[in-house]
């Protein structure tokens, strides 16, 4: 019981500690491709601490929703974090929910932020919220379907069990449908973390922004909570990508293997971050109304992955 509780705390701490580092790493890699020096690796931490020390300015026209939204989104993202295998498959919260719970906890986080953006009544907030909902309505089916392609193959929707099963299948797990689902989920990751063909994370005042438009009214501590929540969500989506599709190296128990597992996980995340930086450096932002094409490509890849899985099993 005590061990479980300690693991519970430890996983939260790992997530909170590594999430800003991932953001910093991607920024650093991107500036490497742009032949810039870029912000220091730990700049995200400094930004968060700076915001934490400041007061929030809240518009008079807002209701309680505006104050509740950062907390709700942060809490739901953290709750999702307890169900995602990070460094061990013996999850403290594994019994409480599976991949569907995780996907819809993300959706809850997004929904609460969009609601708060509408609450302020500013035109930027409304624009950002409507765009975010537009994108998420396209992302959600593809995300569910791409994880389902793997889940059907191993016969469970519990994320930790999926990792364990994929490991036990060895190299035969790397079937065409697995790789298709991986590509589909990678496209989803781009959209879900607001990266370049979909949304530009580096801009603050541009008519094309999506996420930044929604949180334009926030400041100080509330902004810090939202920023950290976004980083944690990005970290978790990367963790899903790493540990569902390439779970090798993850520890199955609570023993000394955890240290090695954390190192393996960090390497996987860093490689994925590099891929993301390359994608972001080589693509331009797409027009908003071209996004359905991108998302339907991802949806089709995930769908093909599911169909191939079923055909291969001779079902």
């Amino acid at each position: 019981m005590l061990v479980q509780f300690a693991l519970f705390i430890f996983q939260l701490l790992v997530i909170l500690a590594l999430a800003p580092l991932l953001s910093g790493l991607i920024k650093k890699l991107k500036s490497f491709f742009q032949i810039r020096k870029g912000p220091p690796l730990f700049q995200s931490y400094h930004d968060l601490f700076k915001l934490m020390r400041k007061d929030s300015v809240v518009s008079e026209n807002t209701s309680w929703l505006f104050n509740a939204a950062p907390v709700v989104s942060f809490a739901s993202v953290l709750a999702a974090g307890l169900m995602v295998p990070i460094f061990t498959t013996a999850l403290p919260f594994g019994f409480a929910g599976d991949l569907i719970a995780v996907v819809y906890l993300f959706a809850l986080a997004r929904f609460s932020i969009a609601l708060a953006a509408l609450d302020t009544g500013s035109s930027f907030g409304g624009m950002g919220a409507s765009r975010e909902m537009f994108i998420s309505s396209l992302v959600e089916p593809a995300m569910i379907l791409s994880i389902f392609a793997v889940a059907i193959n191993v016969g469970t929707t519990n994320l930790a069990s999926i990792s364990t099963e994929v490991i036990s299948q060895g190299m035969t797990a790397l079937s065409p449908s697995h790789l298709l689902a991986f590509v589909a989920f990678f496209i989803i990751t781009i959209a879900e973390t607001g990266r370049l063909p979909v949304d530009n994370p580096a801009t603050h005042l541009e008519l094309t922004m999506v996420h930044e438009a929604m949180i334009l009214e926030y400041s100080g501590k509330q902004l810090a909570v939202i920023e950290l929540g976004v980083m944690v969500k990005q970290f978790l989506v990367f963790a899903l990508l790493a540990n569902i599709f390439f779970p090798w190296g993850i520890s199955s128990g609570l023993d000394a293997g955890i240290a090695a597992s954390i190192i393996a996980f960090s390497i996987k995340i860093a490689v994925l971050g590099l891929c993301m930086a390359i994608v972001e450096s080589t693509t331009a932002k797409w027009r908003l109304f071209r996004l359905p094409d991108l998302m339907s490509i991802s949806l089709m890849l995930a769908f093909l992955a599911v169909v191939f899985t079923i055909i291969m099993r001779g079902g």
């Binding site: 359905p292 094409d293 949806l299 093909l304």
Partner: peptide, 14 residues
């Protein structure tokens, strides 16, 4: 359009 035709393509596969 592209996205409906991709969806129809998926239906054709099934």
């Amino acid at each position: 359009n592209i996205s409906p035709s991709l969806l129809i393509g998926g239906v054709l596969v099934v």
